[in-house]
Design a protein around this nucleic acid. Structure first.
Length: 560
DNA sequence: GCGGGATAATTAGTGCACGA
DNA sequence: TCGTGCACTAATTATCCCGC
């Protein structure tokens, strides 16, 4: 029973005695007792409903809180109780709880916490066994001497306290491609690869990618004489809907940045009525359809849907020969064509308009809009953490806003039509599914950042972070996997089981991939150690490395 | 039936006593 | 000195009485 329920119960309980109880004053009692008083004095209130129904509220009449209430029965209208808004106290409490969770997560994320928490374990290990070849100078017998991660290795957005003991320590690059820069690896590289490295330096992947020629625009769809591209306006509405559905059944499951109801009621309608003109909405719909092509292809390949006749029709088939190689490329090209013009439209007046609108301040975002912004923020932060760490890129500082942005609640978009607002069981299930997956991704991001901060450094003398830290990180990753909600939990030792739904297989596969990639990241410093300081490697270490290699091979097989 | 405004319920803020 | 619990009061919000 919630607090509000308890209050509600106690309130109702009090009303049994309230007629002659606390709410009746002596004057009232006397007035009611005498005929003269009864006619002139105001009637005392029996009780006040904690929440009056919508009709009583509008008519300002007494509500007995029954369902339906007496007035609605008498009036012959539907009795409806709106959702009670959160009280200030509840809002404050919620804010405090959210802030506490944030602080808790930050403390958990701190490398100091990791090293300190495992300090006791280090003590136990050191006490139990005499010095081994793995024992490092800073692994003293007191937890107070457990060394924090030196500040020189702080990555933007993952700050750790400074430490005076950070001398002679060098970071190990976290990005997978940076293995190519390891001195021991460079001696093994073919001359051509070494040449690329010497030409472009450590940023060569980014430089090579940016110099890659752009995909050619497909001009085969230009239809009329003036060159205006109108093939989109000839698309069958059902084809459009089918591709959009495919998108929401695939990509939007693990990147839930678009609200399905809002999209179909507003965005899609506006794009179609505008003949897919040069607007952001059109770009959004075209990109959704492009991803829908990919999504539909994979759904078809996995037997969840059959190839529809509409998409087989050569006249309206958006999957032409070019799209067979890259599904949805035609739609993407159309998006590129439009976005180019739209970006060029960022004139001074556009900026002025945006600033004026933001300073006007009269348009307060509603709950759904705020929740969508929160979805966008957390999705962006999650992807940024993965991509920036993987490509060794600087972070945007967006993570600094974590304390200000609440986690998304996946608020349902209220349709403007006269639609029954009762949420179906399926929608509630879908909502829970999103929340579970979203929170799982976020929790994984924290573990990955912890790996990033805790073990990716060494010293010139061959000292690496204790293997106990690695063990702790493996343990935390396993905890994460085991605590996943049942619907999206996976077994790391067996192949992907047949999924009950596309949502299930996509989301589970996504989490599975993240799991194995993190294992790979935890194990990579050991590889660095083996290549650069083989004298520090023991038989146990070699066995560990072998196990890690097997894990990686298994993960590749499972992913494939 | 409408709606002004009285009233109850709730919340937020303040001060004080008490104990560690 | 600080944290905690309690009592009290002012402010705010929601309900609904009652005159029109």
């Amino acid at each position: 029973m919630s607090n509000s329920d308890e209050q509600y119960s106690s309130n109702n309980h009090s009303l049994a005695t309230s007629a002659s109880g606390p709410t009746s004053t002596l004057v009232d009692t006397l007035s009611l007792a005498s005929p003269e008083g009864r006619s002139s004095a105001k009637r005392t209130r029996d009780f006040i409903a904690r929440q009056a129904c919508e009709n009583c509220r509008v008519k300002k009449t007494r509500c007995d809180e029954d369902y339906p209430c007496a007035l609605c029965i008498k009036s012959g209208v539907e009795c409806r109780y709106g959702k009670r808004g959160a009280t200030k106290n509840e809002i404050t409490l919620k804010m405090v709880m959210t802030t506490l969770r944030r602080i808790e997560a930050k403390v958990e994320k701190s490398p100091n916490k990791v090293t300190t928490s495992i300090g006791t374990k280090v003590d136990e290990l050191n006490a139990a066994s005499s010095a081994t070849v793995l024992a490092l100078p800073y692994e003293s017998s007191t937890t107070a001497n457990i060394r924090p991660i030196p500040s020189v290795f702080n990555r933007d957005g993952y700050s750790t306290p400074d430490s005076p003991s950070s001398v002679n320590q060098t970071p190990i690059a976290f990005s997978a491609y940076c293995i190519l820069f390891w001195p021991a690896v460079q001696t093994l590289l073919p001359a051509a690869v070494s040449q690329v490295y010497s030409d472009y330096g450590e940023r060569f992947p980014v430089i090579v990618e940016t110099r890659r020629p752009a995909l050619e625009l497909d001009d085969s769809r230009q239809c009329d004489q003036c060159g205006h591209n109108n093939w989109l306006t000839q698309l069958n509405i059902n084809t459009v809907k089918e591709l959009c559905d495919a998108y929401f059944a695939s990509f939007n499951l693990f990147t839930p940045i678009i609200d399905c109801k809002f999209f179909f009621q507003h965005t899609l309608g506006d794009a179609i009525h505008g003949d897919f003109g040069y607007s952001i909405g059109s770009c959004l719909v075209l990109t959704v359809m492009a991803l829908g092509c990919s999504g539909r292809k994979s759904l078809t390949e996995n037997g969840f849907v059959g190839q529809s006749r509409r998409l087989q029709n050569s006249q309206t088939n958006p999957l032409n020969s070019q799209d067979e190689i890259i599904p949805g490329l035609g739609f993407i090209n159309e998006t590129r064509r439009r976005i180019g013009f739209l970006l060029c439209d960022n004139s001074m007046q556009s900026c002025q308009l945006c600033l004026l609108m933001s300073t006007h301040g009269t348009q307060k975002a509603n709950e759904w809009e705020e929740d969508m912004q929160s979805r966008l923020y957390w999705t962006a932060v999650t992807y940024e953490a993965i991509i920036a760490q993987e490509l060794n890129l600087p972070l945007s500082k967006a993570q600094d806003l974590q304390d200000r942005v609440p986690l998304p609640k996946f608020v349902d978009f209220q349709l403007s039509t006269t639609f029954d607002p009762v949420t179906t069981a399926k929608e509630q299930e879908s909502e829970a599914f999103y929340q579970y997956h979203f929170l799982s991704q976020n929790a994984h991001r924290i573990i990955l950042s912890r790996v990033y901060n805790s073990i990716y450094y060494n010293t010139t003398t061959g000292n690496y972070p204790s293997t106990t830290i690695e063990e702790e990180l493996y343990h935390q990753l396993e905890n994460w996997r085991e605590q996943l909600p049942i619907g999206i939990r996976f077994d790391n030792n067996s192949p992907v089981p047949p999924a009950s739904s596309p949502a299930n297989i996509i989301v589970v596969s996504w989490l599975r991939v993240r799991y194995f990639i993190t294992k790979y990241h935890i194990g990579r410093p050991l590889l660095h150690k083996a290549l650069h300081h083989p004298e520090c490697i023991t038989l146990d270490t070699i066995l560990e490395a072998h196990l890690g290699y097997e894990t990686l091979s298994t993960s590749q097989i499972l992913i494939l």
